[in-house]
């Protein structure tokens, strides 16, 4: 979904927006796949009634959106050869991260994991950016068969990852490098007021929506 509007609050890849939908009380938090001065792109999977409603919207619909939420990825820590890992819907925010890293002259290796070939998205876009792209599918219907960790090696300076929590944990265990991992949680407000999405870290309680969704590897309590 492409949205026109004020994107001035978005400062980093890995941030999210929170979308108000007619007929639903809670907003829907969705990660930003990419943005520019007046446009933002979100890529979401229809998993429930809220996202089903979003997919029924017609071009020109107007939405009330809180933008620039969350801390996002810190590209200054990437080193010279960062590894980007995305799983399923977690591939989406890695696009803007890859774009920003490449614009800084940093080579990017992206591993994108999907269940099956039919779920693959952003393949051409990552390649057009100039990222080295490895695709894995759990059923082997495209690319390398297996999980993202099956495509990992130790030739990376840093890890950026977004995806289901079991994937994040497996990636974290498979890499000796430092990294940043983006988490999901059911949210109330999305901006730090309600304490609905708290998690434990080595440095105390953090709010996924405000202090995250990106956590440093060394602070994560699995």
């Amino acid at each position: 979904m492409l949205l026109n509007g004020d994107t001035g609050a978005i400062t980093r890849p890995g941030q999210f927006v929170n979308i108000r939908l007619d007929g639903f009380f809670l907003r829907r938090p969705i990660s930003v796949s990419d943005w520019d001065d007046g446009l933002l792109c979100i890529i979401y999977k229809v998993v429930g009634r809220g996202t089903a409603y979003m997919s029924s919207l017609l071009p020109g619909a107007r939405l009330d959106i809180l933008t620039g939420l969350g801390n996002g990825f810190d590209v200054s820590k990437s080193g010279s050869s960062p590894l980007l890992v995305g799983g399923g819907a977690g591939v989406a925010p890695m696009y803007a991260l890859a774009r920003v890293l490449l614009s800084r002259g940093t080579a990017v290796h992206m591993i994108a994991g999907f269940n099956t070939a039919g779920e693959i998205y952003l393949k051409d876009e990552f390649e057009a950016l100039g990222a080295e792209l490895t695709i894995t599918t759990a059923d082997g219907s495209f690319g390398r068969k297996g999980f993202v960790t099956d495509a990992m090696d130790c030739r990376h300076s840093y890890v950026y990852a977004c995806g289901p929590e079991p994937m994040l944990k497996a990636v974290c265990n498979a890499s000796a490098a430092d990294g940043q991992y983006s988490f999901e949680e059911r949210m109330g407000c999305g901006f730090g007021a309600c304490m609905g999405c708290t998690c434990k870290t080595k440095y105390g309680s953090k709010r996924i929506c405000r202090d995250g969704p990106v956590l440093e590897k060394e602070e994560i309590v699995w």
């Binding site: 639903f24 009380f25 809670l26 059911r186 609905g196 999405c197 708290t198 309680s205």
Partner: peptide, 10 residues
């Protein structure tokens, strides 16, 4: 710390 998550439902 409060309760475990999920803490929010619609």
């Amino acid at each position: 710390y409060g309760n475990p998550t999920p803490r929010i439902a619609e």
